[in-house]
Every structure is written in C-alpha cells, then in structure tokens.
Design a protein around this nucleic acid. Structure first.
Lengths: 143, 143
DNA sequence: ACTGAAAATACTGTTGA
DNA sequence: TCAACAGTATTTTCAGT
C-alpha cells in the first residue's frame, strides 16, 4: 500500500473503465505493472469489487430514510432478520441513543411504512424512529 | 426501462467487469444488443458511473460516524461548506429532529473530533449530535 | 517488482434484417 | 431494435531485467 496504490485506487474510484495503459501512464508505470498492482489490490480485498453507481430515483426508489432501531438483547440473530428486508441498504450497530441505524430506500412513503412494519417484526426490536431524507446534497467517493 | 434493463443493471452492480457477451447471454441477447442497452442506460444517467468498492479500514478509515447537524436558516450556502470537508461522505437534508445528516469516515476518534469542529464552523450550524458506528452489519447493493 | 511484446479476448461501429 | 461481422483496442500472460 504505497502512494502508487493509493493513486490507482483513486483513479479507479473516479472511473473504473479506465484501461491499464491509461492507469499506468497516470502513475508512471507500464500497463502490465499497473495491471499487476490492481490485481493484487483485488486479491487482498482492498478493492472489494467493480460496480456501477445507479440513479435510485430513475429505478423507482424515490424515498430515502434512516431508521433508528431500539432494542438491545439480540445483536447477532437480528442482523439476518434485517438483511432479509430488501429495502434495507445499510445496517450499523451504533453507540448512543439507539441500537442499530438503518438506511432504507423505497418507492414511496407507503412502502416505507411497510418496511418499518417488517423491521418491527424482527426479533428483539422494541421501537423505531424514522428520519426521512428531503434532499441529498451529495453521496460521494472519499479522496 | 424494461425487465431486461433491470437485469442488466443488477448484473453490473454485482460485477461491472462482466463482458457484454456474458451480459447478453444472461439476458438472452447478443453482445451488441446488450452493449447498446447499457450504453443508453449510461447516456440517460440511470447508470451514473462505473467505480470500485473499497475496504475503508484497509485504506486507513477505521471510524464511521453519523452526525446530526442542527441549524436552519442556511440550506443553500452550507452545502458547499460541508462538501469542503473531505471526510464527509454523504450529506442529506432531513425531516425531523435536526436539519442535516452527515456520514463521516475518519482514521480515528481524534480526526472525528477535528471534523466535528470544522462542521461547527460551517455557516448556520448551531449544534451537532454524533453517533459512532461500532459495527457495520452490511452496506450492500439493493436488488 | 517492472518492462515490453505477443496472444487471447473484448469492445465498438457498420451492415442488413 | 436486433444479430452478425470486422477492425480496433484492451486485457492478460510471459520471458527477460
């Protein structure tokens, strides 16, 4: 993980369709050497996968919400319960006023209501507080 | 945006290195037809970009936190102020107990403290409440 | 670990259906 | 809008340094 690896990661985060020739030129290496470094970054799991960023609204998910989930004596088993709800994009155990924080994307408020009902049915959940996103300033890639 | 487009998007979200030949076979089209559909999805902005998912911990960002930002009479100008803080990955205007919700990634709690100080210096901010992530169950791609 | 080049594969525009 | 083809570019491997 030297400076060149970090540059390669940054370049690929911006645009993962760049050729190894272009990547190599940008960091001062040959196409083959750039390829080998990226291959190792993938192998070591520093690069998890190559994917696409989508426009969620265009795909029919107009509502984004965060859900604070209360309830404590469960941890392990409920991760699976939350993962089984397809509208839940992220689930984090947090320190502070609740146990778990979820990021949820749904088509509308009706579907959000349905997701909240299903969250409530997960073992150990005693309550939820929901924060609806009105506008997203940015969701970006950290440098 | 028919069912085939949705399948192509799903396949590319899982692995954007798949060839058009593979994509075409998976959805029952030729390589050229699959390519044309993906090109149009990009053109229309449904596919925003191709990128890599990284292991933030491996890149020296071990701490994830959510920051509820209080303060109201500002909206427009402060988006730029928040975007100027490189550790802020997301910023959303929310309905509810605060004005803005930030997702922040830092190397450690010391850096988190520094980010909070800079958030507080943004015009219009009157207070912050921070929730530190103890464990991330998942951050995934929605189907 | 990198270079340079060769071989295999994939992309991308064009044609005609 | 799609399939098939052809030229171009890229990926991927490998011998040599």
């Amino acid at each position: 993980m030297d400076e060149i690896d970090r540059m390669l990661i940054g370049l690929l985060q911006e645009d993962a369709t760049r050729s190894y020739a272009v990547l190599g030129k940008a960091v001062g290496l040959s196409s083959g050497a750039a390829h080998e470094r990226v291959r190792k970054l993938r192998e070591r799991g520093v690069i998890r996968r190559t994917t696409i960023e989508v426009d969620h609204e265009a795909l029919g998910r107009a509502v984004t919400a965060y859900v604070l989930v209360d309830g404590g004596a469960w941890m392990g088993e409920s991760a699976a319960g939350l993962a089984a709800i397809p509208e839940v994009e992220e689930a984090h155990v947090i320190a502070g006023p609740a146990s778990v924080l979820l990021k949820v994307r749904t088509a509308g408020t009706r579907d959000l209501q349905d997701v909240l009902r299903r969250v409530f049915e997960v073992n150990g959940v005693t309550g939820t507080r929901t924060v609806v996103v009105l506008e997203t300033f940015f969701e970006r890639i950290l440098k």
